[in-house]
Simulated scan of single mutants.
Amino acid sequence: MNDPGPRTDEDIERLAGELHERVRALNQLTQGPPGLTAPGAAYTVLGNLAQTSFRLVQAAEQIDAFLTRELDAGRLGHDRGDDPVPAVTTVHNALGRCTEQAADLGDSFRKAASALAPIRALDAGEEPTLDRHAAASLKEQEVAQIRPANEDFPNPIGDVLPGPPNPADPLPPELRSPPHPRRGR
């Protein structure tokens, strides 16, 4: 779509169809064989996925703006003869969620790419450099998290939990449930 000519709805629909086909092809290529072979390629893919996610935000916002303009101008109808406002409002709300989720997705891809940035493939014969001190510290933390429950709870459970409620004691207001409203029929 590099031609400077006018764009049509058909052009836009075709691009949207190509987008999901491109993602499907990307999924097949990253799975392999041979699939990804270098961390640098994964970094680039993550960066591009972040940008794509952020651009999906813009596409959703533009579709929402189009529908709002058309609704405000009175150029939208409903196939069943209903008022189009509730349906367009539902679309507006769903697109709002889409923009939030796409922005979150883009941010997650960006964070993944940032974390991957210093990672590289080892050269042939090169030994991995692991921080032995950090590995030992992680093991100590793991062991500390799996200590016996009786260290946290040295008292028998019966001593810690209150006994059964006395039916003669009134319930405090915060524990009383409000009456259920009757539904109209």
Score class of each variant (00 low, 15 high):
residue 1 M to E: 10
residue 4 P to L: 11
residue 5 G to W: 01
residue 5 G to S: 13
residue 5 G to E: 10
residue 6 P to E: 08
residue 6 P to K: 06
residue 6 P to Y: 00
residue 6 P to V: 06
residue 8 T to F: 02
residue 8 T to L: 02
residue 10 E to D: 15
residue 10 E to N: 10
residue 11 D to A: 07
residue 15 L to G: 00
residue 16 A to L: 10
residue 18 E to Q: 12
residue 19 L to Q: 05
residue 20 H to D: 10
residue 26 L to N: 00
residue 27 N to C: 09
residue 29 L to W: 12
residue 29 L to C: 08
residue 32 G to V: 06
residue 34 P to M: 05
residue 37 T to L: 08
residue 37 T to C: 01
residue 39 P to W: 09
residue 39 P to Q: 02
residue 40 G to F: 00
residue 40 G to A: 15
residue 41 A to P: 00
residue 45 V to A: 11
residue 46 L to Y: 04
residue 47 G to Q: 12
residue 51 Q to S: 14
residue 54 F to L: 08
residue 54 F to K: 06
residue 54 F to G: 01
residue 55 R to E: 15
residue 56 L to A: 12
residue 57 V to E: 05
residue 57 V to P: 01
residue 57 V to M: 05
residue 59 A to Q: 03
residue 59 A to T: 09
residue 63 I to L: 14
residue 66 F to H: 12
residue 67 L to H: 07
residue 67 L to A: 09
residue 69 R to K: 09
residue 71 L to P: 00
residue 72 D to E: 12
residue 73 A to C: 04
residue 77 G to M: 04
residue 78 H to I: 03
residue 80 R to C: 05
residue 83 D to W: 04
residue 83 D to L: 04
residue 84 P to A: 06
residue 84 P to E: 05
residue 86 P to L: 07
residue 88 V to T: 05
residue 89 T to R: 12
residue 89 T to L: 11
residue 90 T to K: 13
residue 91 V to K: 00
residue 95 L to W: 01
residue 95 L to A: 03
residue 95 L to D: 02
residue 96 G to I: 02
residue 98 C to Q: 08
residue 100 E to Q: 13
residue 101 Q to H: 11
residue 101 Q to P: 00
residue 103 A to E: 09
residue 105 L to H: 01
residue 106 G to E: 01
residue 106 G to C: 03
residue 106 G to L: 01
residue 114 S to A: 15
residue 115 A to C: 04
residue 115 A to E: 14
residue 115 A to H: 11
residue 119 I to Y: 11
residue 120 R to M: 09
residue 120 R to C: 05
residue 124 A to E: 15
residue 126 E to L: 08
residue 127 E to G: 08
residue 134 A to T: 03
residue 135 A to N: 00
residue 138 L to T: 07
residue 139 K to A: 15
residue 142 E to D: 15
residue 150 N to H: 13
residue 152 D to N: 13
residue 152 D to T: 11
residue 153 F to E: 10
residue 154 P to F: 02
residue 154 P to H: 04
residue 157 I to C: 02
residue 164 P to Y: 09
residue 165 P to Y: 06
residue 165 P to V: 11
residue 168 A to D: 15
residue 170 P to I: 05
residue 172 P to S: 08
residue 175 L to K: 12
residue 178 P to C: 00
residue 179 P to W: 02
residue 180 H to V: 15
residue 181 P to W: 01
residue 181 P to S: 05
residue 183 R to T: 13
residue 183 R to N: 09
